[in-house]
């Protein structure tokens, strides 16, 4: 078995163990569970509900629902907790769509004011939005028209590979290389813009583009928020630092 498979298996086991820990009332398990899955769940929500705002509201409420159910012993199989978490997030997302209004979080806004960290996760939303703006900006600066065409046809028009190959007169093997290079050039331009924008700013200024790849700040802060939220919902439990 490869190292990658071993790591994957460990992560899978860890999720089940953390779920059991939450069921046993361990607060640290809750925060670790959030840290481990926040980025993954946010990605799923952003992808499924790309055209709506409030992704992080959906994610946070999903964690709240799942952790509460674990604490109340309402989850029969902790080893499938991620499937349950994913389904919960999708259902909450669709509930938002059906209601045709801004998502109504399970916790009222006045209560959220109590927690200083509650708003910290907004930063990652801003970073995401800035990243989108950056892509939009550098798309116009790509050196070749074919880069723009292949990126647009693949990412926006959702066209099939054979269709794009025919339009741009590419072979199947050539398609992967052209798409890869176009993405690389887009990434380089984004990085260049980011570096340029950072001149004169504080060194610790966040980088939307690089954050997507490396930042782990959002999950930690949100985990704190979830922790505080759980403590608020269950005041009899001791709140542990994340």
């Amino acid at each position: 078995m490869t190292d990658q498979n071993t790591e994957a298996e460990n992560l899978s086991k860890k999720a089940g163990e953390l779920a059991r820990g939450i069921m046993a009332g361990d607060q640290q398990s809750s925060s670790q569970f959030v840290n481990l899955h926040y980025r993954w769940l946010l990605f799923i929500v952003r992808k499924k509900f790309a055209r709506v705002s409030g992704h992080e509201d959906i994610v946070q409420d999903s964690f709240l629902v799942v952790i509460t159910k674990l604490q109340q012993g309402q989850v029969s199989n902790p080893d499938t907790i991620r499937a349950f978490l994913r389904t919960t997030a999708i259902n909450i997302g669709y509930e938002y769509l059906r209601k045709d209004k801004k998502y109504a979080s399970a916790v009222d806004q006045d209560s959220l004011e109590v927690f200083a960290d509650a708003r910290s996760d907004v930063l990652s939303s801003l970073e995401w939005d800035e990243g989108i703006k950056l892509v939009k900006q550098v798309m116009t600066e790509l050196p070749t028209e074919r880069d723009r065409q292949i990126l647009t046809q693949f990412y926006f028009e959702d066209r099939d590979k054979p269709d794009i190959c025919e339009t741009l007169d590419l072979s199947s093997a050539h398609f992967d290389r052209v798409l890869y290079r176009a993405k690389q050039r887009l990434k380089e331009l984004m990085q260049k813009h980011q570096d340029h924008d950072d001149v004169g700013k504080r060194p610790q200024q966040s980088k939307p583009f690089s954050t997507v790849k490396t930042s782990n700040k959002g999950p930690k802060l949100v985990s704190k928020w979830i922790h505080a939220l759980i403590a608020w919902c269950h005041p009899q439990r001791e709140v542990l630092a994340v």
Binding site: L11, H37, V212
Partner: peptide, 25 residues
């Protein structure tokens, strides 16, 4: 993807580009 953070990171970037390219059009 929950067990493969590297693949997730690649797809995150793809998703960002997908949404960004959409708005650029």
């Amino acid at each position: 993807l929950a067990d493969h953070p590297e693949a997730l990171a690649d797809l995150e970037l793809d998703l960002l580009m997908q949404v960004g390219v959409g708005t650029s059009e």
